[in-house]
Design a protein around this nucleic acid. Structure first.
Lengths: 347, 347
DNA sequence: CCTCCCTTGTGAAACGTTTCATGCGATGAC
DNA sequence: GTCATCGCATGAAACGTTTCACAAGGGAGG
């Protein structure tokens, strides 16, 4: 039905061989300008559209890179996407965004398809980090992969991350300093590295200074946070909550408010990511800020570099530092107005 | 380097012809089970991965559909993505998410690439709706396209939309009923249909009952809303603002608050989309709710249907009704806590 | 006039599948 | 014992590119 017009038709129409048409498309400088023009005209008249499958088949690989995120719905990741797209665009590469939805099965299926498409490289925040995951297989078979927002360490790939342990620690130190002695960490599942590391960070920071309890969540969404709120004071009369990300924090904030618990007077909250909506929340949210777009940009740059250095490539691990942004949700109770320093971030 | 293993190697290893291997992959019932097993083993041992380019080349089209959104960063669209993915997954189709970022150039480039890839169909909220846009060309050449969140009308394609005029009217009626007589509409650019229709809706609703002024924005982001806030009272001493979407509304809310203008006491705000964060905002936001996931789901269903009915297909236009959710930001100025939220100057 | 080189253009081979007409041995009907 | 039938496997022909070795024509240098 649709485009049945191939390079062949174009060739006939322009009165040249198909090799010449191909040259016009790929190495125009090899073709005499009069011929070139004739071919170009034919292309325009016929509405010819290159067939990428054929091209890829010949080339052996595609011209796109994939970005597999944990949750498209999470503003943190959409910002990462933006960064990645920006960097990719500069190199004329297209980014395919895939959403694993924190589901190992979907991640697996996406990787299957991507490998079948001979994707040029993959940026991923994996759900499944087990040593014989689908991802490992992909890497082992030779597809360049850059881990986004994930652990350093492994030497078989590049990674871009933010120091989550430090982030957790910043939050912990801040809360202890504010006088909190019973703190609850909300987040899960523990299979997600960030969750573990942020927990480890606050754990280290409060050790010996405050008690830390945990309310696990099945995932990192607003709904999960809302549900977790119910267990928060039951969990040990905590006066502060540190959430594994801002979505959960927003949910906790809603849940607590709904139960008549005041934030920050009764319970302080600190989130993580400092998404744009954190500052606009009912009670502006203290949060650990990550350079989200930067993360995407850098990851893409690393990936493209690795693809470039086809021969030998030295894997690198870039680690960014998080920054604690204190807002009302964890301000010193009662002293509502000392030095507000929050300000919506510009862009 | 990477996977040099083709169907051919598998065939040799299993001691069968390549046709048989292909049959095992595509119509296993045609192959004797002993042979089948032998082939399957060979595949596993060699780590064979199908080459999708070759497959597509033969088939003439890919097995994916694309979803081109205006702004991945907008929770409205991420929810649409989720809906689309859910529906697609049920049919074993993969969704490629592309972000035009409200930029006609990027939209154009994405469509170029998608057509080169012989994408099976496209779901799109177009930036460029001019009659000889890149999109029209795509449609004209035979790629099934479903418009998402866009006008009914055209007969050359299906569409799924929410009645934006009605949405605007609901907001307008509500504000008038609340006693507002000077209302400002914030949003832009006018080239975006939703902006025009929502404006038309409120326009119609308030005609003769209140004065409506407009503060245009260059796009529909929080930052744009924040910037627009500066012009709001200057624009005519409005006591209410209707924003083209929730991001803008959130920005306006921040901007007004920062200037010491209280919401809703001094100025009421109504947003659009009812994204998850609207309810969690500093002042919970009244908003016009749209069935976001449903939109994605339905659009995908229509697209798959059109692809199915390869022969004749009747284009359909599904229109959902929006619903006004009233929250504090436009509630009748009750005397809640005489909240003094006059706030910090950003730094 | 012969060589050599340079510029343009050509034709055919490959890329890895799917599909289709065909082959071939065995089974059952007559 | 012959013939149609069935079940399974085969080989070759596409699919639309890119690439590469080579040919044709034309100047320039000798």
């Amino acid at each position: 039905m649709s485009t049945t017009t191939g390079i062949k038709e174009v060739a006939r129409r322009a009165g040249v061989s198909i090799g010449t048409v191909s040259n016009v498309l790929n190495r125009p400088e090899l073709v005499a300008s009069s011929t070139r023009q004739r071919v170009l005209d034919a292309i325009a008249e016929l509405g010819y559209v290159r067939n990428d499958s054929a091209r890829q088949l010949r080339a052996g690989h595609s011209r796109q890179i994939a970005l597999v995120v944990l949750d498209v719905t999470n503003p943190f990741f959409t910002d990462v996407v933006r960064g990645a797209e920006a960097a990719a665009e500069e190199h004329g590469v297209m980014v395919v965004v895939c959403n694993s939805g924190e589901d190992a099965g979907r991640e697996h299926r996406h990787l299957d398809l991507l490998e079948e498409q001979r994707v040029r490289g993959v940026l991923i925040t994996p759900v499944d980090e087990s040593p014989n995951s689908r991802l490992e297989l992909l890497i082992q078979r030779g597809t360049p992969v850059v881990l986004v927002d994930r652990g350093t360490g492994r030497h078989s790939r590049c990674s871009v991350a933010v120091d989550d342990v430090l982030g957790g620690r910043l939050a912990g130190e801040h809360l202890v300093e504010q006088g909190h002695r019973r703190i609850t960490f909300v987040g899960g599942p523990a299979s997600i590295t960030q969750v573990r590391e942020r927990h480890a960070g606050i754990s280290a920071a409060v050790a010996g200074k405050a008690e830390l309890s945990v309310v696990p969540t099945p995932n990192l969404t607003v709904a999960a946070g809302r549900a977790a709120a119910a267990e928060i004071d039951a969990a040990a009369g905590s006066t502060a909550v540190f959430c594994a990300n801002d979505l959960v924090a927003l949910g906790v904030l809603q849940g607590l408010t709904q139960r008549g618990i005041r934030v920050p007077q009764d319970v302080a909250i600190v989130g993580y990511d400092d998404i744009e909506f954190a500052a606009a929340a009912a009670v502006p949210l203290s949060s650990v800020r990550q350079p989200r777009e930067q993360l995407g940009r850098t990851a893409t740059a690393l990936l493209l570099e690795e693809i470039e250095d086809d021969g030998r490539h030295e894997h690198r691990h870039v680690v960014f530092q998080p920054e604690l942004i204190v807002r009302e949700s964890s301000g010193r109770p009662r002293t509502r107005r000392p030095s507000q320093r929050d300000s919506p971030k510009g862009r």
